[in-house]
């Protein structure tokens, strides 16, 4: 019994360590490369773990010449704006879906679910033409079509959370003479705050990572977000892996912070959106 238990422990340990290694190694290697000189990356030092002549040149070039800071700024603007308006819009409709009985509710839910399954490419062409017509290409108006990716998900997670809040509280608030809006802001919102926060984080990450809409609707580098800007670092003629690595390291930091701070909320958001409890 004792030995079999120890073997189990060792097996688990080995699996967990292999897994951690597989997850972390790419980041670790890219981080090392970001301190190497071009000569070392393409020369015999390509597979050396500790850089021979550590340099910050890659970081300096990326930050001050390639304008990665501007794309980080764009990404922050786009992701924050999307998160705010999506949360407001989704909270109202998720509340109605969770609390009211109305005709076509299942159709609405089905529709929201179906939209989350659409291939993104299907909306890109018409939205491109729409933006061309209203002269919105190369602007932050790109946050509007971001709703296709984020809104269904946000409504879905919020409905799940609202359904878990007992209705008795609202009923007593109503008896005390609170309006629907007051019930929402004074009772539901504070209770639902953790769920709303979870949704906000997931929405933020989803819009931070968006690629297709930005690359098609905002071809001007001035308006590139981080994922698009970083994909343009690799051109047909030159591949400066040192700079690519430095840029990857820089843009992974915000994600890393969010994940470290809010992992509980993220996991709860992911599982309530996809898996039933």
């Amino acid at each position: 019994m004792q030995t079999s238990k120890r073997n189990l422990w060792i097996t688990f340990g080995v699996v967990v360590i292999c897994y951690l290694f597989a997850m972390v190694f790419p980041f670790f290697w890219v981080f090392i490369t970001s301190f190497k000189t071009s000569g070392e990356i393409f020369g015999t030092g390509a597979f050396r773990v500790i850089p021979e002549n550590p340099t910050f040149q890659n970081y300096l070039t990326i930050l001050f010449e390639k304008g990665i800071l501007n794309s980080i700024k764009n990404s922050l603007i786009v992701a924050t704006t999307t998160t705010i308006y999506i949360i407001v819009v989704a909270t109202f409709s998720a509340y109605a879906i969770s609390r009211f009985h109305f005709r076509g509710k299942n159709i609405l839910l089905g529709l929201i679910l179906a939209v989350s399954m659409f291939p993104q490419m299907i909306i890109t062409g018409p939205v491109y033409n729409l933006f061309l017509h209203f002269k919105l290409l190369n602007s932050f108006a790109v946050v509007l079509p971001y709703s296709t990716i984020t809104l269904p998900m946000a409504v879905w997670i919020l409905v799940t959370h609202f359904n878990q809040i007992p209705t008795a509280l609202e009923e007593s608030a109503k008896m005390d003479g609170a309006t629907t809006f007051q019930t929402l802001s004074k009772i539901i919102f504070p209770l639902a705050a953790p769920g709303v926060f979870t949704t906000a984080i997931i929405t933020f990450i989803a819009s931070w990572n968006e690629f297709l809409l930005t690359i098609t609707l905002n071809p001007n580098p001035e308006y590139h977000t981080v994922p698009v800007a970083i994909s343009f670092l690799r051109t047909q003629f030159e591949i400066l892996w040192g700079q690519v690595s430095a840029a990857t390291a820089i843009v992974t930091i915000p994600t890393l912070i969010i994940v470290l701070l809010f992992q509980r909320q993220i996991v709860s958001g992911l599982t309530s959106g996809g898996v039933k409890e």
Partner: peptide
């Protein structure tokens, strides 16, 4: 493990793809 799992999921796909292309 949870932390290590969330990072690949959370980073932009384009960034992950570029990293792998290296």
């Amino acid at each position: 493990v949870r932390t290590a799992s969330l990072i690949p999921w959370a980073i932009p796909t384009a960034v992950a793809a570029l990293m792998w292309s290296y």
